[in-house]
């Protein structure tokens, strides 16, 4: 089985994560709805990026990281022995803080994941490349230089290329770890528009430091503090009438 099917709700139950002796995430329970944008906010070091990386099991690569709890995406237990981590990552794409295009052509960057999963026919690859670049709204800018090295692009273009590269694997969920923090406002705006479009088919979870960004793009917002999930709800409610005093202090800029 290569594809996750059905609804792509994400759930975490009794989530505890340790780096060695350090208790980084404390008893987090959350249900993230499909085909919406959910923002994870909170001060640096609060565990939001760590939490995000549970869902494509990137923490597996971190030495001394121990994870407890139950995690499901679309009903699939992501830590189950039956679940192939590479299939999981194909279905749960990730965009990183720093754009990380591979040192190869734009075309080969996008075709990388399809080739990994056995697509070799040129016409099929051409189609996936064009479609993915269009979905990441960068097709018009690069269609004449698909064979050029991706490292020659600007930072904003590189980041949209990385989004297109993820989309080429036809993921059902997209995890974004501060995807615009290294970009200028115009590039940031483009990526935010893009997310609006992508959430029609994808469940998007984004970590952001920028609270305006959360209010602009997120349907739901979760506020993390010192490894705890303090408050989670509709973005409007979180920013207009937070229930927890700590949330209010954070969004009004009084600490963090």
């Amino acid at each position: 089985m290569n594809e996750f099917i059905g609804s792509m709700n994400i759930t975490a139950k009794g989530c505890n994560l340790y780096y060695g002796d350090f208790h980084a995430l404390k008893d987090i329970n959350i249900e993230i709805p499909e085909k919406q944008v959910t923002a994870l906010i909170g001060p640096s070091g609060c565990g939001k990026s760590t939490f995000l990386k549970i869902f494509n099991r990137m923490n597996d690569l971190v030495e001394g990281c121990r994870i407890e709890g139950e995690y499901h995406i679309g009903g699939i237990d992501i830590f189950d022995k039956e679940t192939d981590v590479n299939i999981l990552r194909k279905n749960v794409g990730m965009v990183f803080q720093k754009p990380n295009p591979f040192p190869m052509s734009i075309y080969d960057n996008i075709a990388f994941a399809p080739r990994t999963f056995g697509i070799t026919k040129k016409s099929k690859l051409d189609e996936i490349v064009e479609q993915s670049l269009r979905r990441a709204s960068i097709w018009d800018e690069v269609k004449d230089r698909l064979r050029k090295n991706a490292l020659g692009m600007s930072g904003g273009q590189q980041q949209r290329l990385c989004i297109a590269r993820s989309l080429a694997a036809s993921p059902k969920v997209l995890l974004m770890d501060e995807p615009t923090s290294a970009l200028d406002p115009i590039s940031t705006g483009k990526i935010e528009e893009l997310m609006e479009e992508l959430k029609k088919d994808l469940t998007i979870v984004i970590v952001t430091h920028n609270m305006q960004q959360a209010t602009r793009i997120a349907d739901k917002t979760a506020f993390f503090l010192l490894g705890e999930l303090v408050e989670y709800g509709n973005t409007d409610d979180i920013f207009t009438s937070p229930r927890d005093e700590r949330t209010e202090r954070y969004i009004t800029g009084r600490f963090g």
Partner: peptide, 22 residues
């Protein structure tokens, strides 16, 4: 750069393919 390895793994690339292709 470590980011390249992470990027490849995040696409569901196996370790061997990451080593040889990236």
């Amino acid at each position: 750069q470590g980011g390249l390895r992470e990027g490849a793994y995040a696409l569901g690339t196996s370790k061997v393919r990451t080593i040889f292709r990236i």
